[in-house]
Computed example of a mutant assay.
Amino acid sequence: MEPTRVEQLVDDEWKPVHGITNVVIYDEQQITRITERIHEVQDAMTALMHAYAEAARPLLVEAARAFQTLHQAGLVENDGKPTKRRDRPAWQSPYGPAQRRK
């Protein structure tokens, strides 16, 4: 089977259209079946996303409760970043005091 060429009329001359690998022509029945199939797939994807959201809801609620508990305990700020430790002065390094040089 020889490949089909696609051409367009430019300045009263037919020129090939490059980059097109195939052309499919559908009749009205085929278009109707394809459209119905697309709607079936869309409905299935919508149902899947709703099921996923419902399955994820308890996990997200629990994560929100855990964050709220950490925030109320003063361990995280509103944006989720850890708060500064309160068990030592701000000037003191978490690695201990600086070593003295001899």
Rank of each mutant, 00 (worst) to 15 (best):
H71G: 01
S93M: 11
S93N: 12
L48D: 07
Q68Y: 11
G80I: 01
G74T: 01
D87C: 12
L75I: 06
V61C: 05
P82E: 09
G74H: 05
L60G: 10
A90K: 07
A53R: 07
Y95K: 06
R88I: 10
Q92R: 10
L60V: 01
H71I: 02
P97A: 11
T69V: 15
A56G: 00
M49Q: 11
H50V: 12
D79A: 10
G80K: 02
H71T: 01
H71L: 05
Q72P: 00
A90M: 03
R65I: 02
R57K: 12
L70W: 03
F67L: 07
E62G: 07
G74V: 02
P97H: 08
E54N: 11
D87A: 08
T69N: 15
G96Y: 06
L59V: 00
L60T: 02
Y95D: 08
T46K: 12
A47D: 08
R57G: 06
R85M: 15
H50M: 12
A64M: 11
E77R: 05
M49L: 13
G80C: 09
Y52Q: 07
L48M: 04
L75G: 07
E62M: 06
L75T: 00
V76W: 01
A51Q: 13
A64Q: 14
W91T: 06
R57A: 15
W91E: 00
T46Y: 14
D87M: 09
A53E: 07
G80T: 04
L59G: 04
L75Q: 11
M49I: 05
L70C: 04
R57L: 15
A55G: 02
A63G: 07
E62Q: 13
E77I: 00
A66S: 13
A56L: 13
M45Q: 14
P58S: 01
L75D: 09
T46L: 15
Q72A: 15
R85N: 12
H50S: 08
P97G: 10
H50L: 14
F67Q: 00
R65W: 14
Q72E: 14
A56S: 10
A90R: 05
A51M: 12
R86E: 09
M45D: 10
G80P: 01
A53P: 01
L48N: 07
T83L: 15
S93F: 14
G96P: 02
T46H: 02
S93E: 07
E62F: 04
A73R: 13
K81E: 05
G96S: 02
R88A: 15
P58H: 00
W91A: 10
H50A: 11
G74D: 08
T83Q: 11
T83F: 08
R57T: 06
V76N: 01
R85Q: 12
P58I: 03
D87Y: 14
L60D: 06
T69L: 15
L70S: 01
V61H: 07
N78T: 00
A64L: 11
D87T: 02
E54P: 02
D79W: 00
A64V: 09
A90Y: 06
L60Q: 11
P58N: 02
A53T: 12
T83V: 13
D79R: 08
H50Q: 05
P94A: 10
A56M: 13
A53W: 04
G80H: 08
A51R: 00
Q72I: 03
A51N: 12
R88F: 15
A90N: 03
T83D: 09
D87E: 14
A73F: 07
A56W: 07
E62D: 15
V61F: 06
P89Y: 05
D79T: 03
R88V: 12
Q92H: 06
